[in-house]
């Protein structure tokens, strides 16, 4: 069986700077793929290209055998791709509940026909179930801009899931979280696994990624340098070198 998501020879250039250099890998149905690499390796750029934020310079993204490379962002969303952002991007002046409600794709596909549509109570109930699952039910009427950091991260996940996606990209969801918060987050992610075809998780927290991922893709300087089982990949000398090298450069 062919992979659900196939990334083939993807390139992305920014004014001569190569952010993605011949990136290819597959993600299979039901897989939770960890995407790791030092800062600036191109992980977020990859998510941005696949979710339509940036246009690819070359290469193809296949989703269930269809070329989706040049589709606009909203069409990719309608094909089941949802995501969170490295620097949290909630609708700060809308309430927590509204942030979840607005992601319901049954309405965004035909915005003007929703004016008289009923079912608002049911929508709210469904959104509240989702908020309950990420532990934010008590905050439903708070403005999203007033949430604490960990809460904002979880609301972003709830918002991404409210569109009933098939693929979820999480861009450093545990960044800046303490150990307890990351563990809660891991529990949240695990609880949603069965409902999604694919989760791609970018993360620096090695413990978290080792615990959650079925497979790892390691990137460095825009290239994929290793793919495989977490235990094998994390023992790969090239991966260790990429991380250590980056740390030396940082220090």
């Amino acid at each position: 069986m062919s992979a659900l998501l196939e990334i083939r020879a993807l390139h992305k250039q920014f004014r001569g700077l190569t952010a993605l250099d011949d990136v290819s890998f597959d993600v299979a149905q039901g897989e939770l793929l960890g995407l790791i690499g030092p800062n600036g390796a191109g992980k977020s750029v990859l998510i941005n290209v696949v979710s339509g934020v940036y246009a690819a310079s070359a290469g193809t993204v296949w989703l269930r055998g269809t070329d989706v490379t040049s589709l606009p962002t909203y069409q990719l969303a309608r094909r089941g791709i949802a995501r969170t952002y490295q620097n949290i991007r909630l609708f700060a002046r809308m309430s927590v509940l509204e942030n979840v409600l607005v992601a319901d794709q049954r309405y965004s596909a035909r915005p003007f026909r929703t004016l008289f549509a009923g079912g608002r109570r049911e929508d709210c109930a469904a959104a509240e179930v989702l908020l309950e699952r990420v532990g934010l039910a008590a905050k439903r009427d708070a403005l999203a801009g007033t949430l604490a950091y960990g809460e904002a991260r979880r609301l972003e996940i709830a918002r991404a899931l409210a569109g009933r996606p098939r693929l979820l990209f999480l861009d450093e969801p545990a960044a800046g979280m303490n150990e307890l918060e990351s563990e809660e987050l891991a529990a949240v992610i695990r609880s949603f696994r069965a409902e999604l075809d694919v989760i791609v998780l970018i993360e620096h927290d090695v413990a978290l990624i080792r615990e959650l991922s079925d497979r790892l893709v390691v990137m460095d300087s825009g290239k994929v340098i290793a793919v495989g089982k977490p235990a094998e990949v994390l023992a790969d000398p090239r991966v260790i070198e990429a991380y250590l090298g980056a740390e030396e450069a940082d220090g």
Binding site: G52, R83, R89, F91, R93, E98, V102
Partner: peptide, 29 residues
């Protein structure tokens, strides 16, 4: 007034707050 209480208003608010995120939720900005 009708719009202001509707799902459409919510989508418009999302577009106004952050076009890019609104698009990634399936809204045709």
């Amino acid at each position: 007034w009708l719009i202001s209480h509707s799902r459409l208003q919510r989508m418009l608010d999302a577009v106004r707050e952050d076009e890019l995120v609104a698009a990634s939720l399936g809204i045709n900005v």
